[in-house]
């Protein structure tokens, strides 16, 4: 763990210490029948700057709600939440967001889709063009700039979504099962692409929701298990970086963690 990126990591950590912090946060939704349903309760979670956290759990365990809370899409009903030292809403300019479905806008070309976030944040046209072109190149899509989304394969579309996320240069990446909709082989290639991007740049804080235990252990620094609205387990993965996906699966620690979590997923 003595790569040069670690310095940026520590610098970030000193500047912000914890990037994301939840204190006794809970979320309760009202039922249409008039009752209420508690999705999350008393969540205490600190994510240091630069850490890659995977949130795992069965469907309905509240992991997406937790992510939405960090993205300011859901207000906590109780407790407090801070992102980058401010409220989640104020931290939004520093967030990147990725979903299971690529959510590409069909009337924009690959290039136009990568520019979308930059456009919303008021970046000028020339910079936008340049940045989008660069990132499309980084995800191996040079030459596909002018293709419409329907002309791209699923894997290519999700890589465009990766480029769109990265083009914003976010401090925090929020990812909601970003590779879940891909077929097995494409998933591995896009995961590898993502891992390379993340390991090559200044290290960004990642909150990664997934129900794929293997994916969580292979990619993340830390795995948090949610169940029935609570944190059930919270473990450091402790496998050295840089990793590659094939190597990780053979690591003894991978198997150990896999066995530990498997029962509860």
């Amino acid at each position: 763990m003595n790569s040069p990126t670690l310095h940026t990591n520590t610098a970030n950590a000193q500047r912000f210490g914890t990037m994301i912090s939840l204190r006794k946060s809970g979320v309760t939704f009202a039922n249409p029948e008039g009752g209420s349903r508690t999705v999350l309760h008393d969540i205490d979670l600190d994510v240091p700057a630069g850490q890659f956290v995977a949130l795992v759990g069965r469907s309905g365990c509240g992991k997406t709600t937790l992510l939405n809370m960090i993205a300011a899409l859901v207000e906590p009903s109780s407790g407090a939440i801070e992102v980058r030292g401010t409220s989640p809403r104020d931290a939004r300019p520093h967030l990147g967001f990725m979903l299971a479905r690529d959510a590409l806008l069909p009337w924009r070309t690959a290039q136009g889709n990568v520019e979308y976030g930059l456009e919303l944040r008021g970046t000028d046209r020339a910079t936008r063009r340049q940045v989008a072109r660069d990132w499309l190149g980084r995800v191996h899509l040079s030459g596909s700039e002018r293709l419409w989304p329907w002309q791209l394969s699923q894997g290519m579309r999700q890589r465009v979504a990766l480029a769109r996320t990265w083009a914003l240069d976010p401090d925090v990446l929020l990812m909601d099962e970003p590779f879940a909709a891909l077929d097995a082989r494409t998933r591995v290639s896009v995961q590898q692409e993502f891992l390379e991007l993340w390991q090559s740049g200044p290290q960004r804080t990642v909150v990664f929701v997934t129900h794929d235990l293997g994916e969580a252990i292979a990619l993340a620094d830390r795995v948090v298990l949610l169940g029935e609205g609570r944190i059930l387990d919270d473990v450091e993965v402790d496998i050295e970086r840089p990793r590659d996906l094939e190597g990780v699966a053979a690591h003894p620690r991978y198997q150990e963690l896999y066995d530990r979590f498997r029962a509860s997923i």
Partner: peptide, 29 residues
């Protein structure tokens, strides 16, 4: 308009006018 587009746009910082011009109007075209 697809709910995912709106969710993503909101997090990326879209204002109401952005949503109108960049999502709802093109999708209605």
């Amino acid at each position: 308009a697809d709910a995912e587009w709106l969710r993503l746009s909101a997090v990326l910082g879209a204002k109401k006018r952005h949503l109108f011009w960049k999502v709802m109007l093109p999708v209605a075209t």
